[in-house]
Amino acid sequence: MSFSLLNINYQNNNKNILNDISIDFTEKSIGVLGHNGSGKTTLMKILSGITKPTSGKVEFDKKNLKHISDLDRAKNIGYVQQDREYVIGFTLYEYVELGTFPNKNILDFKKNLDSKVIDKALDIVGLLNRKDELVDNLSGGEMQILRIARVLAQNTRVILFDEPTSNLDLKNAHKVSSLIKKLNSHGIQTIVTSHDFRILKDISDFLCLLKNGVILDFGKTKDVLTHENIINAFELLPEHYSKIDSNEFKDL
């Protein structure tokens, strides 16, 4: 599984969001770090195929993503994002079942063909024992973990995570990041965005540094996470970075 981006541009309301991005994502565990508005979410949407770039070409497994059908794309690429959903009254099980959509045939009347897949997804995230509860009662952090289960039920080889830990407390953020690492060990490629290098330093082996729609650096996380890179990418002033403990970079 590999992504290959060639001269990707994206404009919205005459504003350049992504500027001539060319990069190959072949590694198993990749992070995308950038400030708010750097174009992380747009990049993820383009990788997931739900947004078409203004110009340029995305290849997935050496095939032009444009020419892969919606359903085939959904069988290969999963996408976890935080968004408003209208799922009041769903049980956890029923919610995760939505993830089986690309692999489901409506004429399939066999008794709960997907139940094993759904149970397994709930089990991986540790919510199997609560599968008959209603999602209405979940906290924001638990809902985010359930979203991951939904995408797991989609059974894809690649999962994109857009800001998976923002809005989460420390405990749930830790749960999510160890979950992502677990997926890597199961052979799933993960691409994770964040504006917080502390999180990506734990999750991702490789790091892509994004600033104003341009890639500043890409490589092994410890090589990319340098003092200079961070200051440059986030346009930090001396009074900001004096507060960052420089030890955080040493132990990488």
């Binding site: 195929g49 085939d72 994002q81 408003r84 939505l98």
Partner: peptide, 23 residues
């Protein structure tokens, strides 16, 4: 009735529904 399965997915956000392969 044929579209009922797709209607289920519309409960999610538009982007999530698209990422599940729904037009």
């Amino acid at each position: 009735i044929f579209y009922s399965n797709k209607l289920n997915v519309l409960a999610l956000s538009d982007d999530s529904a698209k990422s599940l392969g729904l037009n």
